[in-house]
C-alpha cells in the first residue's frame, strides 16, 4: 500500500478548510508533491468547496419589513461610535478601520496601519501584498478579503481593496496556475472596488529566469513595480498587509 493511501478524504477536506495542524499540513503537502492522483482528489474537493461558496454568494435578504425601519436608521446613526466600540471589544486595530481576523494576521509577515486622519472616516483602504503561492494561505486571504468586502459594503462604508501580487504570489493571478480562478472571477463580478494587480518586474523575471510567458486572469492589472505601488499607497494612507 502506497503511503498516500493513508491520506483520507476527511484529511483532504480538513486541509482545504485550514483545519489541520502544522505537522499534518506539511505531511499532506509533501504527499501532494509526489502524488498526482492525490492532487486530483484535492482539486475536485477544492473546486466543489468553491462552487458551493459561489452558489449562494450573491444572495441577499429582501428589504426589511416596515416595522424594522427605525432599527436600520438607528444602525446608521450610531455606525461610527459602534465601529469604535466593537473595535475595542473584538480586537479591531487601526482605530476601527480594519477588522483584523486572526486568520489573516496569523499568516501576515508585515502589517502597517495608517491611522492619520482616518479615525472619523468610514473610508476603508487596504493593500494585501501577496508573495506566496501556498494554497492554504491564499485560501485564507481570499476568505478574509471576501469577509471584509461584504462586511464593509453592508455597512455602507466606502471600501477599496487591492490584491497586489509579485514573486510566487503571481501564481494566484496566472491562468493555469491559479487554483482560485473561479472564485476570483466571482469576487471581481461582485465587488468592483476590488482590484487585482501583478508586478511587471516580477512577470519579466519569470520570463527571464524560467522562460514562462505568463497569461494573467481576466481583469488583472499590470503595474510597473510592486514596490513603487506599495510606497505610493502607503503615502496615500492605505493600510498595508504583506502575506
Amino acid at each position: 500500500m502506497s503511503p498516500t493511501h493513508n491520506i483520507s478524504d476527511e484529511t483532504l477536506c480538513a486541509y482545504i478548510d485550514g483545519e489541520l495542524d502544522q505537522p499534518e499540513r506539511i505531511w499532506v503537502e509533501q504527499e501532494l508533491e509526489s502524488d498526482s492522483s492525490l492532487r486530483l482528489r484535492l482539486k475536485k474537493l477544492a473546486q466543489l468547496t468553491e462552487q458551493v461558496r459561489g452558489a449562494y454568494a450573491d444572495l441577499e435578504a429582501p428589504a426589511q419589513k416596515q416595522k424594522n425601519t427605525s432599527f436600520l436608521q438607528a444602525r446608521l446613526a450610531i455606525a461610527a461610535s459602534v465601529v469604535f466600540m466593537v473595535g475595542l471589544t473584538a480586537g479591531w486595530i487601526g482605530g476601527g478601520q480594519y477588522n483584523a481576523q486572526p486568520g489573516l494576521l496569523g499568516i501576515a509577515q508585515t502589517v502597517s496601519v495608517n491611522r492619520s486622519d482616518q479615525l472619523d472616516s468610514d473610508d476603508f483602504r487596504l493593500v494585501l501584498h501577496i508573495t506566496t503561492n501556498d494554497a492554504y494561505k491564499l485560501n485564507n486571504v481570499l476568505n478574509e478579503a471576501e469577509k471584509l468586502l461584504s462586511k464593509h459594503s453592508e455597512q455602507g462604508n466606502k471600501v477599496s481593496l487591492i490584491l497586489l501580487t509579485n514573486g510566487k504570489g503571481l501564481d494566484l493571478v496566472r491562468a493555469g496556475t491559479s487554483q482560485f480562478s473561479e472564485r476570483i472571477k466571482n469576487l471581481q463580478a461582485r465587488y468592483e472596488n476590488l482590484s487585482l494587480q501583478a508586478c511587471q518586474l516580477a512577470l519579466k523575471r519569470l520570463k527571464i529566469e524560467k522562460g514562462i510567458n505568463a497569461t494573467l486572469l481576466p481583469g488583472v492589472e499590470v503595474i510597473p513595480s510592486a514596490m513603487g505601488e506599495i510606497i505610493q499607497k502607503q503615502h496615500e494612507g492605505w493600510t498595508y498587509i504583506k502575506i
Binding site: A57, L59, A61, R75, I78, V82, V86, S150, E154, Q155
Partner: peptide, 19 residues
C-alpha cells in the same frame, strides 16, 4: 450602548443568515 451595538451587529448578520 452594548444593546445598540448588538443590534448593529445583528443587522449586519442578516444577509449571512439568509444565505
Amino acid at each position: 450602548l452594548l444593546q445598540k451595538q448588538l443590534h448593529n451587529r445583528l443587522a449586519a448578520s442578516r444577509n449571512r443568515l439568509y444565505r
